[in-house]
Simulated assay, not measured.
Amino acid sequence: MSSGDGPGPGLSGNLVYLLKHAHLRMAELTANAVTPYGIDGRELGVLLSLAGREPASQQEAAQRLGIDRTTMVAMLDALEGKGLVSRHPHAQDRRRNVVELTDAGRETLRLATDANDAAEREFLTSLTPKAAEQLRNSLQKLVLPPDD
């Protein structure tokens, strides 16, 4: 390896650099994995946040993902245009829109999740299974709120 290759010693241990480039690599693998199903990685995140729960309002879905309401509306518009989610007024509060996966949305989610899982396995191939589990657990501790 020549002196121009790689990040160099100053960056190779820098956590921000490492997390950014790990994210970029994982995002690329995810995009390649889910594109055949007509969605991108962000849309997969929205579908995952809606799956297996009671129907959520647009605002609740945005809060789950930590994104602003305007961005969520645009993403839901796109997913609704693809026939993957439906929105309708809440039964008790007509001011709230409830968002649900359609049958096509559930099937797309199933296929895209399988493809994404394969992309994650590819991303983690240089780690032992134990190290991969430790990485996931450590990131969960850093990112997710603690259980009470």
Rank of each mutant, 00 (worst) to 15 (best):
L50S: 01
T113K: 07
R121N: 14
A31L: 11
A27I: 06
P55G: 04
N137A: 15
G41H: 00
H23D: 15
E107K: 04
R110G: 05
L44V: 05
V16Q: 09
G6F: 03
E133G: 08
P129G: 07
S3Q: 10
M75T: 13
L65D: 03
L111A: 09
L18W: 02
A31V: 02
H88L: 13
G41Q: 01
R95C: 07
K82Y: 06
V99F: 02
S86T: 14
D40V: 04
T102R: 01
K82G: 09
K20W: 12
P9K: 13
N116H: 15
K82E: 06
Y17H: 12
M1I: 08
I39V: 12
N32D: 11
M26T: 11
T35L: 15
Q140A: 13
R136C: 11
R94L: 12
S3Y: 10
S49K: 01
P7K: 02
E100R: 00
E43N: 04
R95H: 11
A115Y: 05
N14H: 12
P89L: 03
R53M: 08
A74G: 03
L109W: 01
R96C: 01
M75S: 12
A131P: 07
E28D: 12
S57T: 14
L101P: 02
A62V: 02
H88N: 10
L44M: 09
H23E: 14
G83E: 04
A119T: 08
R96Y: 07
E107P: 03
E43C: 02
V98I: 15
Q140V: 11
A104S: 15
A56V: 06
H21D: 06
S3C: 05
S57V: 06
P145F: 03
L29W: 00
H21L: 07
A74W: 11
A33E: 05
L76Q: 04
D114C: 07
L15M: 09
P129Q: 02
D77R: 15
K20R: 15
T125Y: 10
T128K: 00
G52T: 02
D68T: 07
E100Y: 04
L135D: 03
K82R: 12
Q134F: 12
P89E: 13
E133V: 03
S57Q: 08
V34M: 05
V98W: 13
P7W: 08
E28W: 06
D77M: 10
D117C: 10
L109T: 00
P36F: 02
A91Y: 15
G38E: 08
S86A: 08
T108K: 01
S3W: 09
L124P: 04
S3D: 10
E43I: 00
G66D: 07
R64H: 03
A78W: 07
A61C: 11
L18A: 12
L50H: 05
P129R: 10
L124V: 06
L139I: 12
A115W: 03
R96S: 05
E133A: 14
L48K: 14
R53G: 06
K130I: 12
L101H: 03
A112V: 01
M75A: 04
F123A: 10
L111I: 05
